[in-house]
Design a protein around this nucleic acid. Structure first.
Lengths: 253, 253
DNA sequence: CGGCAAGTTGAGCCAGGTCAACTCCGGTGG
DNA sequence: CCACCGGAGTTGACCTGGCTCAACTTGCCG
């Protein structure tokens, strides 16, 4: 393979192009070194990063797409424990022994397997890079904790509302616009939220019927009533009275 | 205040005494600096770390006890999104804006509010300390993801089995013994697993009746059949046939 | 314009939530 | 020492949200 200068290889990659992300913190020499020792990989839906591969390349940076961490139960039940997107760096160094979930692409995903050696060097010497990556890991941790809280006690409709906000918070631009992209399929969404695809579908319909959202397509939502959606996500029982579920007082005699 | 030498103040603290934990990685000068600029705090059940306090002391190191991150829903439903124990360091720097959960003690908890300034200095200069704290944060992240996966699709009995293993993995010694300490109350356990205290109680009884565990007290379990418990935790449907729930074939005519 | 996978709709049912009553246990004061 | 108290945990009976299964519709790709 001919020598490709880092700036060529990395030019189009979000991790370099977005000034808030990891590779944008590196100086020329660092980027050259990391670029040369790292390997990009393009995955399609269903592709998984196998354990033997991860043993040599335990550091995965996401350029684009959605990568999932899935847990499989004995009898075939599946759950998606976490979603990794643009800018996330997954660090699986020394975690082979515990039964971690598999990393599976939910669509077209471009990742970069970072060289652990160069990564460590950069971490030790470049405080900006260190800060960025630390905050990314911390976001992953808090996001997972929030998500635990969400799926533990919320009802289906509330979980879905929370998920819509999670998508909004994580999407690149338009944080305050009323358009939200749902970057995963209904099935994946169900697995992430610990519910059934049927229930997901019913909940979307419910929100639509109540005029809170509009769904021009499966991947795109328009929020029509953000405060109400927020109330639902926060578990406000006054707001989300379901179709035909008005708490009817049992009337005696 | 008189000058207290670090070794005095930190001597009894797990973070220093346990060679795998953060403060044990520091050299004399670093420990002195961190010790002098940090503040210990002893909490009792129900005490919470308030946001204004966290703004000045966003780094919490746990010496002993169990600290919970709780999310409160509008209508009073509560969930415990994460449990922090001995050796964990909670980093809440720059997260005040997002509606993070509250940090609430589930019993007697000894914490040390670390000086952010000194902490950053140490992070920048001491690679061992950096490695330890990085791995701690990563553990927190993966633990939260595992936990999400657990509560998303598992049934009550399976969640409880998983939790017993989580306790075993996190307790200090005796990893392979058959005694497991449950360091939280039943109510807290229920909130962490997203179920009702009643259900928790029923599941413990179920495991006891089937001879898988023995509960000498509320805080202590003896595992009698670890492989079976593991199968249940992994969602093996063949194993965990409940009392009187043998899949009876509906017989026609 | 088929053909298949993804998503939706409907009907029935069950795991676990809910509510209420009870037991257990540690602490307190007479 | 024991009666009392209050909070934690347990037990039982009932009820419902969402899971299940099956049939249907929609969307996507060649």
């Amino acid at each position: 393979m001919g020598h490709i200068h880092a700036s060529k290889k990395c030019q189009g990659c979000a991790l370099f192009a977005d000034s808030k992300l990891f590779c944008a913190q590196l100086n020329g020499a660092e980027l050259d070194a990391l670029s040369q020792k790292s390997r990009t990989l393009s995955m399609k839906r269903g592709d998984s990063l196998e354990h033997e591969a991860l043993a040599h390349w335990p550091l995965i940076a996401i350029d684009s797409g959605v990568l999932s961490m899935q847990h499989l139960l004995q009898d075939g039940r599946k759950t998606i424990a976490a979603l990794f997107m643009r800018g996330d760096i997954v660090d699986l160094r020394n975690v082979s022994n515990r039964n971690r979930g598999a990393l599976i692409a939910l669509g077209k995903v471009d990742v970069c397997r970072l060289s652990p050696k160069v990564f460590e060097d950069v971490m030790a010497r470049n405080p900006d890079a260190q800060r960025v990556i630390w905050e990314n890991l911390r976001d992953q941790a808090f996001r997972a904790m929030d998500h635990s809280g969400d799926i533990a006690k919320k009802q289906a409709l509330e979980k879905l509302a929370s998920f819509i906000f999670e998508c909004r918070n994580r999407q690149v631009g338009y944080k305050d616009g009323d358009l939200v992209e749902i970057p995963v399929r209904r099935v994946d969404l169900a697995e992430y939220l610990g519910m059934q695809p049927e229930t997901v579908s019913r909940c979307f319909k419910d929100l639509e019927k109540r005029g809170i959202i509009e769904a021009p397509s499966l991947k795109m939502l328009r929020l029509l009533n953000v405060p109400m959606l927020r109330r639902i996500a926060n578990g406000d029982k006054d707001a989300p009275i379901r179709e035909g579920k008005m708490k009817v007082l049992k009337f005696a005699g």
